[in-house]
């Protein structure tokens, strides 16, 4: 029994499970991080810098992914690159990140709804993102066969779709904006054909 409890208490801070004290700690940590990273410019355009953890979600399992795979460090002042995620409700989350961070890790570290079922190994399509600006899309190194093969299976594929795990931030991509496709969809007629 004591091992069970230890196992749980070790895990909970990492995962932020329901309503336990450690989960609150993690939320605050993440929120501070968001604030910190957005702070330098937030005085100028405050509305742009949304916190990434709407309270309604903050006590839930959804942030379990935050530290599961999404391991990113806060950028040093002056070295920030910015990426904006637009969720399926249209809410925008502008995040300061480091050169080299990939979009899956960033999204998970900020509790955005991106699954990454294969752990970022380009073996599923659950971290599908849509680059909103063709110009930015063209600046990202071209997808390889493996990524394209997975994109072929993605729901709502567009001409500017990418897998988040394969897009790494660079100074050229500073200001990148990506949309998160809906995670769930209504089943279509074709789903019922074998």
């Amino acid at each position: 029994m004591s091992t069970t409890f230890r196992a749980l208490t070790q895990r909970i801070p990492r995962l932020g499970f329901t309503l336990r004290q450690p989960s609150v700690a993690i939320v605050q940590q993440a929120r501070c991080y968001s604030k910190l990273s957005a702070a330098p410019r937030s005085s100028r355009r405050p509305t742009q810098y949304l916190l990434c953890l709407p309270l309604a979600q903050s006590r839930t399992l959804s942030q379990s992914s935050a530290v599961g795979h999404g391991h990113v460090d806060p950028p040093k002042p002056g070295k920030e690159l910015y990426v904006t995620f637009i969720d399926k409700e249209g809410a925008e989350y502008k995040i300061a990140v480091n050169n080299g961070d990939n979009l899956l890790d960033i999204a998970q570290a900020h509790d955005l709804e991106m699954e990454g079922a294969c752990g970022g190994s380009c073996a599923c399509s659950t971290c599908h993102v849509i680059v909103t600006d063709q110009e930015y899309y063209d600046r990202i190194p071209e997808p390889g066969d493996d990524e394209n093969d997975m994109l072929d299976l993605a729901f709502g594929l567009t001409e500017t779709s990418r897998l988040g795990c394969q897009v790494h931030m660079t100074p050229e991509l500073d200001g990148l904006r990506v949309k998160l496709p809906s995670m769930t969809r209504n089943l279509q007629e074709s789903d019922f054909k074998s």
């Binding site: 196992a7 749980l8 895990r11 909970i12 995962l15 499970f17 329901t18 399992l61 379990s64 992914s65 599961g68 795979h69 699954e115 079922a117 294969c118 752990g119 190994s121 380009c122 073996a123 599923c124």
Partner: peptide, 15 residues
């Protein structure tokens, strides 16, 4: 790599 989804399942089960 396809089995990496088990990491998520482990997290769920730890709740």
């Amino acid at each position: 790599e396809v089995k990496n989804c088990q990491d998520k399942f482990e997290e769920v089960a730890a709740s």
